[in-house]
């Protein structure tokens, strides 16, 4: 069973969101998602300053045999990206919720947080997908 921290929110498309409490959030992919993809070999991040819409494609993670689009869980402006991943994409495999974060958003619509799943609901979704 993969790790699903209870303090985070989740998108159906397997991204996690951490509220920083200052109108910004940090976004990454879940432990379950990195497990499904296998060893990551490349991460393509959005440009700092770009504006993202909730549900829009904004990044790509690649393993040897798959490439997966990352959808922004919320709308906002990218204020930081985890540039270390360019050299060390395996960090996402090793620490999906910590050093393997992807980007940070300054939110434009705080209400969107209500659309996200909590840990329990996300866990149930994974469970359902496996059957």
């Amino acid at each position: 069973m993969s790790n699903i921290p209870s303090e985070l929110k989740y998108a159906k498309s397997h991204e996690w969101v951490r509220d920083e409490g200052d109108g910004t959030v940090v976004v990454g992919i879940t432990d379950h998602a990195q497990e499904q993809l296998g060893d990551l070999v490349f991460v393509e991040l959005p440009e700092v300053g770009s504006l993202l819409n909730a549900g829009g494609e904004c990044a790509v993670v690649e393993s040897v045999k798959a490439a997966s689009d990352i959808y922004s869980p919320m709308s906002g402006e990218v204020v930081a990206v985890n540039a270390a991943l360019e050299e060390a994409p395996e960090t996402v495999n090793e620490d999906a919720y910590g050093d393997g974060w992807l980007f940070k958003l300054k939110l434009s619509d705080l209400g969107e947080a209500d659309e996200l799943l909590d840990a329990e609901a996300y866990g149930a979704q994974i469970e359902a997908e496996e059957h």
Binding site: S63, V64, K65, A66, A67, D69
Partner: peptide
Amino acid sequence: LQAREQHIRRSK
């Protein structure tokens, strides 16, 4: 670098 290619990325 096969993830660039059509058999994996299909329409992208």
